[in-house]
C-alpha cells in the first residue's frame, strides 16, 4: 500500500472515530474511540514530526482518555438508582433515532464544506498534504459539532481536545517546536482534568 493511501486511511480513521464520538451514547465506547483517535493523530503528525515528539501526542491523548474515563466511571458508579432514573442515566440511555439522523446529516453537510476548504488550507500552509489538511479541517469540524450538540463537561472536554488535536496536526507541519508541543500537551491534559473536575460537580444532573 502506498504512503498516500496510508495517509487517507489515517485521516479516515480519525474522522470516523470523531464522528462516532458525536453520535454514540455509551461513554465507555466513546472513551475508547477517543483513545484510538489519538493513535490516528500520532500517525498523521509522524509524517511531519520526529517519532519522539509524535509519541508525546500519543501519551497525552491516552492520558486524557484515561482521566476522562476514570472520572466518568467514578461519577456513574456513585449515582444512586434514583439519581440515575431522574437524570436519565440509565445503563442504556438512547436518544431518538431522528436526533441521530439529524446529527449525522449535519456532519455530512459540514463534511462537504470541509472538502471545499482543503485546497485553500494547502495553499496557505506550505508543506501540508491533502489527507493531513482533510483531517485537520474534519477534526476541527467534528469538535465544533460535539461542542454544539452535547453539553456535559465530558463531551465539552472531548470536543475541545478534538479541536486541539486538529490544531496539533497543523502545528506539526508548520512549527515543530518542542516548547509548543509541551505546552499543548499540558493544555490538553489540563482540559481533561478540568472536564473530570467539572463532572464531579455535575453528578445528579449528568447526561453525556
Amino acid at each position: 500500500m502506498s504512503a498516500q493511501w496510508l495517509g487517507y486511511l489515517e485521516a479516515f480513521l480519525v474522522l470516523t472515530l470523531g464522528l462516532f464520538n458525536l453520535l454514540a451514547q455509551d461513554w465507555r465506547r466513546r472513551v475508547l474511540a477517543f483513545a484510538f483517535q489519538a493513535i490516528g493523530v500520532v500517525l498523521l503528525c509522524w509524517q511531519s514530526l520526529s517519532l519522539t515528539l509524535s509519541l508525546v501526542k500519543f501519551i497525552e491523548g491516552w492520558m486524557a482518555a484515561a482521566i476522562l474515563g476514570t472520572a466518568m466511571a467514578n461519577v456513574t458508579s456513585s449515582l444512586s438508582p434514583e439519581d440515575s432514573q431522574s437524570s436519565g442515566v440509565a445503563p442504556r440511555m438512547s436518544l431518538p433515532f431522528s436526533v441521530l439522523v439529524f446529527r449525522f446529516a449535519t456532519a455530512i453537510l459540514v463534511g462537504a464544506s470541509v472538502l471545499g476548504g482543503v485546497p485553500y488550507l494547502m495553499s496557505v500552509f506550505n508543506g501540508i498534504r491533502y489527507h493531513q489538511a482533510f483531517a485537520i479541517l474534519g477534526l476541527a469540524a467534528v469538535g465544533l459539532l460535539i461542542l454544539s450538540f452535547r453539553s456535559s463537561p465530558f463531551s465539552i472536554a472531548i470536543g475541545l481536545i478534538t479541536i486541539l488535536q486538529a490544531f496539533e496536526i497543523l502545528l506539526a507541519v508548520i512549527e515543530p517546536s518542542v516548547m509548543l508541543n509541551g505546552l499543548l500537551a499540558g493544555v490538553i491534559l489540563g482540559m481533561a482534568f478540568l472536564g473530570a473536575y467539572l463532572m464531579f460537580f455535575e453528578r445528579g444532573q449528568y447526561s453525556p
Binding site: S151, P153, G159, L160, L194, L198, F201, E202
Partner: peptide, 12 residues
C-alpha cells in the same frame, strides 16, 4: 458547586 451553562460557555 455546580457546573452552570455560563461556566461551560466561558470554557468553550
Amino acid at each position: 458547586e455546580e457546573v452552570t451553562l455560563g461556566i461551560k460557555r466561558y470554557w468553550i
